[in-house]
């Protein structure tokens, strides 16, 4: 299979190159596709002699953009999606999705798009949503309305709903029951109030539809391996929900460096949970630089205190001049010395 893939790539690269050198850009669409089909048939020695082969079926082994650039001039739906700013070459990655979209007419999806627009979603965001989740167009309008009604019933304000839909393209493909289960899970596990749940869903909508196993795993890591208590975990969740989407290995590595090497107490980490989202490598580089300069002082009660958030947030220039009171050149040389 790998060899075929290689052959396809070669052919495809050749054609795209030809096509994209705009001077001789009139290698016609149909021509390219039949040639490709020919090659594919030779390679796979298919019994089927008809020249019409559905290109979406082999889109995975073609260069991204190959299928959509062959269809875009003929297909109305693709042109309309293009106007919305949908990245068509990304849609191709899922052959089923592309196949489904090519069978659509613009009339079919018009209502869904108007519906999204009425919810206050920006046009660019509609394009983004469809790029990320083309199967949203498969959902019936009534279902979507029910799902929005559910949110309204749960006292989400219109701004919250807009933010949720803009930030999490897959939210609307989840049924009401699923979403209810997920919200219930968070409320129960972290003993949140209704307001907390709404704040959480608005702040990080993707966490709600994230794989629950991973959230549970991270909860375990925070609770059993790092030793935070329930109240502290709740604080961390509400302050920095994204942490629960990180891989548990990375989380633990960062924590170990913070707690064992930098001697940061747990209370400080709870107060500034964004330090846990920093990579261990970055933390190591910066801490060892400060340690070399004798500036690694993270206790707010003593002079020359370095705040953890400023330590990790700023870029290298600001960090080396403002925080470490040194120069970028020194910092770069230091990076080469470790």
């Amino acid at each position: 299979m790998y060899r075929f893939r290689f052959i396809f790539r070669k052919i495809e690269i050749k054609y795209i190159r030809n096509a994209s050198s705009a001077v001789e850009g009139n290698v016609s669409c149909t021509n390219t596709s039949t040639e490709l089909v020919d090659n594919q048939q030779n390679a796979l020695t298919k019994a089927d002699t008809s020249k019409r082969i559905d290109l979406t079926a082999i889109s995975k082994i073609l260069r991204p953009g190959a299928v959509s650039s062959m269809y875009v001039n003929k297909s109305d739906i693709l042109q309309q999606l293009l106007k919305l700013g949908v990245e068509l070459y990304k849609l191709e990655k899922d052959p089923e999705g592309m196949k489904f979209i090519l069978t659509l007419k613009f009339e079919d999806i018009k209502d869904t798009i108007i519906f999204l627009k009425e919810l206050g979603v920006e046009t660019q965001q509609i394009g983004y949503i469809i790029t990320k989740n083309p199967l949203l167009l498969k959902e019936s309008l009534d279902d979507l309305k029910v799902r929005i009604n559910y949110l309204q019933y749960k006292k989400f304000t219109p701004e919250m709903i807009t933010r949720i839909i803009e930030n999490n393209p897959v939210w609307l493909t989840h049924s009401t029951k699923e979403i209810d289960d997920r919200l219930g899970f968070f409320q129960k596990t972290f003993s949140l109030t209704a307001n907390n749940v709404r704040a959480l869903a608005t702040q990080c909508p993707r966490l709600i539809t994230y794989q629950m196993d991973k959230v549970k795993l991270n909860l375990f890591v925070l609770k059993e391996e790092m030793g935070f208590n329930d109240v502290e975990i709740k604080k961390i969740l509400l302050n920095k929900p994204n942490l629960f989407k990180n891989s548990q290995v990375r989380l633990l590595k960062t924590f170990e460096y913070l707690h064992n090497t930098m001697k940061i107490p747990l209370e400080t980490i709870v107060r500034e949970p964004e330090v846990l989202s920093c990579r261990e490598k970055r933390l190591k580089e910066r801490h060892s630089f400060l340690a070399k300069l004798g500036r690694d002082q993270y206790d707010p009660k003593q002079p020359n205190y370095v705040a953890l958030t400023t330590l990790i947030k700023e870029d290298d220039v600001v960090f080396s001049t403002e925080v470490a009171k040194s120069s970028v050149q020194t910092f770069n040389n230091f990076l080469k010395s470790i």
Binding site: A22, G25, G65, N73, L82, L88, Y89, K90
Partner: peptide, 18 residues
């Protein structure tokens, strides 16, 4: 307009395997 060369259609010109 020839939409075939639209950046949103053809995607990135240089792929990692190139």
């Amino acid at each position: 307009i020839d939409l075939r060369y639209h950046p949103l259609v053809v995607g990135p010109r240089y792929l990692d395997e190139d």
